[in-house]
Structures are given as C-alpha cells and as structure tokens.
Design a protein around this nucleic acid. Sequence first.
DNA 1: AAAATTCTGTGATATTTATCACATTTTAAT
DNA 2: ATTAAAATGTGATAAATATCACAGAATTTT
Lengths: 233, 233
Amino acid sequence: MIRESDLSRYKCQTCRDKSCATEKLGMEELNLINNHRYISDIRKHTNILNSGSPISHIIYLRSGFVKEYIISKDGKEQILQIILPHTYLGFASLFGDKINHFLYSALTDLKVCYIGIEVFTDMIKSNGNFAFEILSSVSRESLNNFHRFINLSNKKTFGRIAEMLLYFSRVVFSSSNFQIPLTRLEIAEMVGTSRESTGRVLSKFNNEGIISISGKKIKIKDIRKLEKISRLG
Amino acid sequence: MIRESDLSRYKCQTCRDKSCATEKLGMEELNLINNHRYISDIRKHTNILNSGSPISHIIYLRSGFVKEYIISKDGKEQILQIILPHTYLGFASLFGDKINHFLYSALTDLKVCYIGIEVFTDMIKSNGNFAFEILSSVSRESLNNFHRFINLSNKKTFGRIAEMLLYFSRVVFSSSNFQIPLTRLEIAEMVGTSRESTGRVLSKFNNEGIISISGKKIKIKDIRKLEKISRLG
DNA sequence: AAAATTCTGTGATATTTATCACATTTTAAT
DNA sequence: ATTAAAATGTGATAAATATCACAGAATTTT
C-alpha cells in the first residue's frame, strides 16, 4: 500500500467529477481526503471485506467491478449488487452500527482508495450541505437497490434473466455489447434461480435471436423484445 | 385538520422519547417542529400517499398501523413493510428526488402529524449532529428492510409465513398473542405467495399446534418450532 | 335485520422450476 | 504442454406452488 499524498498522479481531483457522492465537495475537503487515503491494487477474486467486521475505512473504487453478496444459512451465495467504478463501498454501513453487513469480492482486478471513516464523519458533522449530499446519495442508492430487488422478486425466471441482461447493458457497461464478469452460477445467484435454469434461458434467448452469446461475451440484438420479456415478469 | 400549536395536549415532547429519529433533538428544535405541524385523524383503509406524488410533508405516525406497498405491472400489490407507531412515513424519499415512491394505506384508524419538509431540511443543514442522527436512522432502517426482504426471498412458502408470524409477534406487537391487521390476501402480498397457499400453511401450523388461529386472532404456541421452520427456508 | 360485498377454505390440476447425473468444454495451474 | 479444476450444457425427474372453481363465513353497508 502506498501513501498516496506523496504521489502527484491520482489526486482526488481526478475522480471528483465522476458523479460520486463527493462531487459537491470544496477544495479544502478534497485535500483533506487526499491527505488521508491510501491507494491499493487488488487482484481478481480477492475477498475485500468480510461480513461482521468493523469498518475503519470507506473504499473508493477507482476501477474494476466488485460483487456485494451474502451467504445464506444453507450456504448459498446471494449477489446483491455489482459495485461500479467511481462509487464507494460500505458507505451505507458507516452510519449504522459501523459493522459491515455484506461480503465483497473483486470480479476483476481493481484500483481502490482507502479513506479513514473519521474523515467522512468529521465532514458530515461540520458541513451541513455535505451531510445533505451524502444523505441524498445514500438514500437514493438504497432506494434503487430496494426497487431492483422488488422488481426481481416479482418476476419469473425468464423475466429475471432479461432484467439482468438489461441491467448489465444499461447500468454497468452502457453498451449492448459486453463481457459479463460473472459465471453462470453467479448470474443465477444474482437473479435467484439455479445455474441450469440460467443457462437454459440464456440459450433460449440466443436461439430466438434476442441475444447472441458465446461464453461470457454477450451482445443484445433485440432490446425491445428483452424489455417486453422483462416487463411480463 | 387542526393547527396543533394551539393545543396543549400532544406536544412533540410527548413523542420525543419513543425512540424515533428525533430523540436527540434539543428543545428549540422540538419547538420548531411543534410550531410547524398539523395533526390529523385518518380512518382505516384510507389512502394516505400515492406513488409519484411530490412530498411536501413528513408524516409522523402517532398511533395505528400503515402498510407501505407498491403495485406491480400486472396489478398485484406487494406490501413492503408495516409502518409502526412513533415512526416517520416517507422519510427516505425526502433526501432523494422528493418524490414519493410507494403507496401508503391505513390498516387501522390513525393519529398522525404532518410536518413540513423544510423544517427537517433546515435542521439538517444547520445542525450537523442532527444530520448524522437522521443519516444513521435512515440507513439503518433501509438496511433492515433490505435484509428482511433478502431473507424472505431465500425462503419457501412455509419459511416465509413463519417469518411473517415472528415479525408480527416480535417487531409489530411484542406479544405472542395478537390480532393481525391484514387479510389472508394481504399476508400473501407481504410474503410473496398466493392467498390460497397462505391459508393452507396457516391451517397446517394450526393443526400441528404451532399456532392457534381463528380469523385474524393469532396466538403463537410453539415459537421454537416456528423459528426452526423460518430458519430452514 | 337483510342484503351485498368481501373474505376464506378446499380439492383438482397445471405450471414452473429445482435437482440430479453425467458428458463436454473452458480455464487455470504445474 | 499436460494435468487438474472449474464451468457449462442437457435430459429426465421430482417438488413446490400457482391457478381455477366454487361453497361457506364473516364483515360491511343500507
């Protein structure tokens, strides 16, 4: 781990405009963060945070994708969301009991920054506007997650897979052509079906010309049809 | 609707200690709220807020129960949570787009207070500690909801009904003996099954001596067994 | 108190989807 | 390059649960 304040590259200013919660921060505050962070590279498949561990740092994801998940009592993984670049990790837990409630694992190689939580808690208490911004972003995000989850749970397998494809195409990659960083089993864990069903539905979509898929490379060919399937539930 | 500041009963002080988000407020702030609220009585089955409407007031629930729900594209209701007395309604939406995202309907007769949202936004911006309190309470609550939801979705019908019973017994009524303010259909909408399955499972629990049920009156007789069923999924 | 509406229970049936078992392919490790 | 391990596809089967149809209760309205 490298003390970032010594380096000239990767200043926080570089990340500020990427629509993260800190985009409304002033220069002084940005410098404060800049002086209290550590950068780190994390390799694919590494476990980042464990459930139940106390939180000492917020993790800012500079590049790469992370899965947030839990393990249910019967040992199955349930993926809750994919954390995207220029987003924070573990923010929501910060204001509750300061215990991390989920598991995080790197889906790809990552570049991250660790920022001590005191930096944030101090700024929140001293800067009302910043507090309000954070409050907005936390509640918006949790509302989004909740909605996505409700949506999923009202759908049958076909609708779920369709929605997952739209999610990756729109939210994660902003492209109809992408390489999904998940195995079939992980997709299943994300939408709440079995590995086999996931594969079957994906093949069916492929045969019907809705998508073309080869391994993890996916191309969405008929987004209207996919939207329709997703709507039907 | 009655301007409450004219009355001496029902001052905000009365509600302060009921473990709501405002329990850490000072006297001045409490008075501010006190001077900017309206009380209202709402009858059972009344719709309180519609999805999509802009939020102008936070609603503090002084007594009674409210269901928070959405209507999915195929017209089915999905109950998200039961709002308990001495809790706020619509708080989470306040900090995002200020649009209400859910539907709210009175399960029982209610006593509520309407408080203009500016009162809260002003206090948040001027009082960092209050902002932090609100932040904590909002994220804790949304985390709870999320967890409850994830838990449910990992279970089969038996487990879901068991969990629902435990939820009412522990969280809502703090008693093993209660009258559930929901129809069978609403229970089904809450746990994500069909009306018929709900009834069947409830009868089965009754026949096995785990609960005794007659209409909406429920008594939990074997909580250990219920917990076990809920755990198994 | 009667009528109307809503709610509930029950059996039969259809649908959906998980599970199992095994062959094949792909990816990672030595 | 070879071996080992992980991931994927496919058919057969079983399990879970929704749906339908209707009768009887309970609740609300007039």
